[in-house]
Design a protein around this nucleic acid. Structure first.
Length: 394
DNA sequence: TCTGGGGTCCTAGGACCC
DNA sequence: TCTGGGGTCCTAGGACCC
């Protein structure tokens, strides 16, 4: 989806269309005041001049999405808001409204699966679709089906997307970036050298900032330059698995299937504080946050129907260094008190003299709650300990 | 003026078991 | 008196992605 969060906000506030708008920040909805002040007005009639702008923002946070108008000023995803404010102080700043994005996410995905049922969910704003067996999926190399999907999503939601069509996920992902926004790009196997090889390595999904730097140090800047390297040489520099993958990726080879369903591995909640906190000096405040995070994780697990047995904490110090600690329980749980208690044990194993900027609670080694129940009743027949796995404290 | 939140996967060492 | 080989699980950190 094109600038997804921002585009959803523009559905609510069409008067902001064409203006630099960024989504992000840590405050409650800054338009709360707007809504109160303009309670008599529909959202779409709130004057543009009354929207909060980047230059008035103080505090922590990053941009999650910027409209294309804002990107012209050099601001973009993951940029700190304070830095963005220097580049484009007049940009309108709206806070993240995840419920709203989830709602539109479900809608566009439902539209896609109606047209092409083999869809892999890649997060709130991205999917892979298998066109292979869809009627008309091969017409014009896939362009006609891509157009149909774009038009149906636009008619139903008012949102635009960009689609890349290619023989595999690796190339399709790269192709989808070629013509944003509202783009359709078809890349055939034979186009590898002309369309893919000139690109910077960083464009490959799986090469991040670290790998890019390492590649640059070797004089490898483009995918084509990467493709010139022998597999063994890359494996020497990057390790057996990653090196082999780099070798394949540079040749446009990727045999990963489109995965329709997957089980979650972990559930977590974390928060960056308004100001850095100290374990001793701000003990009460930290304790309350810690409890809230544990309760949120427990609620998330219960809502999704999972239990887990590895409980962990994550801390980020004021110097941005992070540490994690975790502990595996002998039983599965989704209980806030058990999570809070175990996470508390983990916290004791971590140095706490430095100020903290972030605290997180995580539950991993998940299992579906109904499967865990089944296991515990199996167990019951063996040792007459009802619900031992799920509810050891009962 | 630094740098969100929610994830996945990989690596590597140590414990422990057969 | 010098110590194999394979497997699994646990833990911590880190790269990467949306």
């Amino acid at each position: 989806m094109d600038a997804f969060y921002a585009s959803v906000e523009l559905l609510r506030y069409p008067q902001l269309k064409g203006l630099p708008v960024v989504i992000g920040g840590r405050r409650r909805r800054p338009d709360d005041e707007l809504l109160v002040r303009h309670a008599e007005l529909p959202l779409s009639e709130i004057p543009v001049a009354d929207f909060p702008s980047l230059k008035d923002y103080t505090g922590r946070g990053v941009i999650t999405t910027a409209t294309y108008a804002a990107r012209q000023f050099g601001v973009g995803s993951a940029m700190g808001l304070m830095k963005a404010a220097k580049l484009c102080p007049q940009a309108i700043l709206l806070p993240v409204d995840f419920d709203q994005y989830r709602h539109y996410s479900r809608r566009f995905k439902a539209i896609i699966t109606e047209i092409a049922p083999l869809m892999e969910d890649r997060g709130v704003d991205e999917v892979y679709i298998d066109f292979t067996e869809v009627p008309g999926g091969q017409r014009e190399g896939g362009r006609s089906l891509a157009r149909l999907i774009q038009k149906t999503i636009l008619d139903d939601t008012g949102l635009t997307c960009s689609i890349g069509v290619a023989p595999n996920k690796l190339i399709a992902k790269m192709a989808s970036e070629f013509n944003k926004p509202k783009g359709i790009s078809i890349v055939h196997e034979a186009d590898l050298q002309t369309l893919i090889w000139p690109l910077p390595c960083r464009k490959i999904n799986g090469i991040g900032p670290k790998a890019e730097e390492k590649l640059k140090a070797l004089g490898i800047h483009t995918v084509g330059e990467l493709a010139a390297w022998e597999r063994v040489a890359l494996q020497e520099k990057f390790g057996k698995v990653y090196g082999a993958w780099l070798h394949e990726a540079a040749r446009g080879r990727d045999d990963r299937p489109v995965v329709l369903e997957s089980e979650p591995v972990s559930v977590s909640r974390e928060t960056t504080f308004e100001r850095d906190l100290h374990a001793v000096h701000d003990k009460a405040e930290l304790g309350a946050i810690f409890t809230r995070l544990s309760e949120q994780v427990a609620a998330d697990l219960q809502r999704k129907g999972y239990v887990g047995k590895t409980i962990g904490v994550k801390l980020r110090y004021d110097n941005f260094k992070s540490v994690t600690r975790d502990q595996t329980l002998p039983h599965y749980t989704a209980d806030a008190k058990v999570i809070r208690q175990t996470a508390g044990q983990c916290l004791k194993r971590v140095p706490l003299s430095q100020r903290l900027r972030l605290l997180g609670v995580r539950v991993g080694s998940l299992m579906r709650a109904d499967d865990a129940l089944k296991q515990s009743t199996d167990q019951e027949t063996q040792d007459h300990d009802p619900n031992a796995l799920l509810f050891p404290d009962d």
